[in-house]
Design a protein around this nucleic acid. Structure first.
Length: 152
DNA sequence: GCCAACGTTGGC
DNA sequence: GCCAACGTTGGC
């Protein structure tokens, strides 16, 4: 079983939204590296840290689990929507999404604290300029971040 | 296939 | 709102 971190802008979709919906698709990923991870590696039962970006309290805010593996992201075919990709072929969709289920909130683990923790130095998240919206998290990193919440 | 221009991401 | 860093695009 693997662990992941998914970034989201809470103004668009937050951990609270996910809690309300319980299960949600993770649409709108338009980056090949992130897509490949969804398509090839993310499995049902994998654990996911939800991370809030571009907001006041940037950091890890909760946990979800994967409940459905990669399937075509239909938002790529909606010309009215923000995730439209005119170059994607309906017979061979370019973009996929997975479904995740809300598990729990966590006490915020801020990006600032993660950057200051040597044990997390290898996370793509804390490396300068990294913009991956989906990234793998090692077991050690997962445990360390849980520890940093002070809840466990 | 190179690479400059451009658009986007995302922390601050 | 600024701007550095990155990915993508498109001319050649």
């Amino acid at each position: 079983m693997a662990n992941w971190l998914f970034k989201t802008e809470p103004d668009t979709f937050s951990i609270d939204t996910l809690k309300q919906q319980k299960v949600s698709c993770w649409e709108g990923v338009r980056n090949y590296q992130a897509r490949n991870m969804m398509r090839d590696e993310i499995k049902v039962g994998d654990q996911v840290f939800i991370y809030h970006s571009s907001c006041k309290d940037v950091g890890v805010v909760g946990i979800a689990t994967v409940v459905r593996e990669a399937y075509p992201d239909h938002f790529q075919f909606d010309p009215e929507g923000p995730y439209y990709d005119p170059k994607s072929d309906p017979d061979n969709p370019r973009w996929v999404m997975v479904d995740i289920e809300y598990r729990r909130h966590l006490r915020l683990v801020s990006l600032k604290r993660m950057k200051a923790n040597p044990l997390l130095a290898e996370m793509p998240l804390v490396k300068r300029g990294n913009r991956l919206s989906i990234m793998p998290v090692t077991d050690a990193q997962w445990q360390e971040i849980l520890q940093m919440t002070g809840q466990f």
